[in-house]
Design a protein around this nucleic acid. Structure first.
Length: 104
DNA sequence: CAGTTGACGGCCC
DNA sequence: GGGGCCGCCAACT
């Protein structure tokens, strides 16, 4: 198990997190996040589809359906996608003290 | 254990 | 804003 996987579930509905954000909280590199996500193609227990690139692009999706399914799931979450890209307004940032302890 | 690849990001041109 | 190159951590061979 990895912290990044846990962070996926911490992402509020209608919002998305970037690889770099997860990397920032996990203290690792965005490459690692992608690798971890690729190792976990389980959108059921872990909404990996809520993770997008910093550029707003959906990035990739190893789970069945591909990036198209990913976009579909995001829209179902309340995230509006424009030209296969997510608006920066949906970018969610994790609390600095949200490493592994609840805050506020 | 060592080498290469990959769901990416940042800097330079 | 777009394209190219380097760096990064983890997983696979």
């Amino acid at each position: 198990m990895h912290q990044a996987i846990l962070l996926l579930k911490k992402i509020p509905r209608g919002r998305v997190a970037t690889y770099k954000e997860l990397a920032r909280v996990c203290g690792t590199s965005p490459r690692a996040i992608g690798s971890i996500m690729g190792s976990n193609t389980d959108p059921i227990n872990y909404p990996c589809y809520k993770v997008v690139a910093a550029s707003g692009e959906l990035g990739g999706y190893s789970a069945p359906g591909g990036c198209k399914k990913k976009a579909q799931l995001l829209r179902a979450d309340g995230v509006e996608i424009r030209e296969d890209k997510v608006d920066q307004k949906y970018f969610y940032t994790f609390p600095v003290s949200a490493n592994n302890h609840k805050q506020t």
